[in-house]
């Protein structure tokens, strides 16, 4: 696997505030990474540091194995940070021409990318006349001009209406499908769950979790059970060796496991103890639940 970006023990302090604390991360080619965290958890600061706009306090990062300087490496990166920044008095095309000059990309890419994000009809309109959704799409077009090896998106759907969010999400999925590595920072969990394969969870500048999305929760899920007598069910369950704990919620019993157990096996065990279930579901935590769990318990 080719490493695109590696971050080692990166820290950033703004006066008394520790914005990022010892963040480490490896980005491999072809994966889609999500950085999750509540507002102010250090997502944008971390991205700002590797994109050369925020100075690190300590730690290291290197692009493409450290063979080139950051600003040279950024020629192979496409990034948008927070809000779309363009010259309001220039048209979409003129703005992209400027970006082409900076990145050393071909002008021919401009129409191709405008087509991709659906702005070709407005290419000669001034940037100041664009709606927020169009500005954000222009930013994506601009980030894609150099056919980057990695696309970095920081809150790409912030402040957009449902259609806008949907359009951006479709574009991201399309880009991910082409095999481009993506690093997506967001606090919208379903967004990350839908597109990302790996996730980094930050809170107050610290890494809480780093790894695959589907391995985020340590156990393999939990059971939702219901029977006529919940008390009896609970006391029987707690005698079983593989059960860690039971929590009653909305008239159902949530059963957490120490070791994996199959639904049919659990059902049989309970039936042998004369308990008939009227509800049995094996559930996995949604990313949102896992995220809340993580950020709460630490």
């Amino acid at each position: 696997m080719e490493t695109i970006l590696s971050i080692e023990n990166l820290s950033k302090r703004f006066g008394p505030v520790q914005a990022v604390r010892n963040v480490s991360l490896e980005i491999q080619k072809g994966n889609v990474y999500g950085i999750l965290g509540p507002n102010g958890s250090g997502k944008s600061t971390t991205l700002g540091i590797v994109l050369n706009v925020v100075n690190k306090t300590s730690g290291n990062y290197s692009w493409f194995g450290g063979t080139m300087q950051t600003h040279e490496a950024l020629k192979k990166v496409g990034a948008i940070i927070e809000r779309p920044n363009f010259y309001p008095y220039m048209t979409a095309t003129e703005n992209l021409e400027l970006v082409c000059k900076i990145k050393g990309a071909d002008y021919l890419k401009i129409n191709e990318k405008l087509q991709l994000v659906g702005l070709i009809d407005r290419k000669n309109s001034k940037f100041s006349t664009f709606s927020l959704g169009m500005k954000q799409r222009l930013a994506i077009a601009s980030a894609l001009l150099n056919d980057p090896e990695i696309l970095i998106l920081d809150e790409p759907t912030n402040g957009l209406d449902p259609q806008g969010i949907h359009q951006i999400r479709d574009i991201i999925k399309m880009i991910a499908a082409q095999g481009t590595t993506i690093l997506l920072a967001s606090h919208l969990l379903d967004e990350v769950e839908k597109v990302c394969s790996h996730v980094l969870v930050l809170r107050k500048g610290e890494v809480l979790y780093s790894g695959r999305v589907d391995e985020m929760s340590a156990n393999d899920g939990f059971f939702e059970l219901q029977s006529d007598d919940l008390q009896q069910l609970q006391s029987v369950l707690l005698l079983l060796p593989k059960i860690e704990k039971c929590i009653e919620e909305n008239g159902k019993l949530l059963v957490y496991l120490k070791a994996p157990i199959k639904a049919q096996e659990l059902n049989r065990l309970l039936f042998e103890k004369n308990i008939v279930l009227n509800h049995l579901v094996l559930r996995k935590h949604s990313l949102e639940e896992q995220f809340l769990e993580l950020t709460k318990s630490h």
Partner: peptide, 16 residues
């Protein structure tokens, strides 16, 4: 306009 930031992200170095 925030374009200083964007220029730097778009790979212009501070020296440039």
């Amino acid at each position: 306009y925030g374009t200083l930031k964007q220029n730097l992200i778009d790979s212009l170095s501070k020296k440039e």
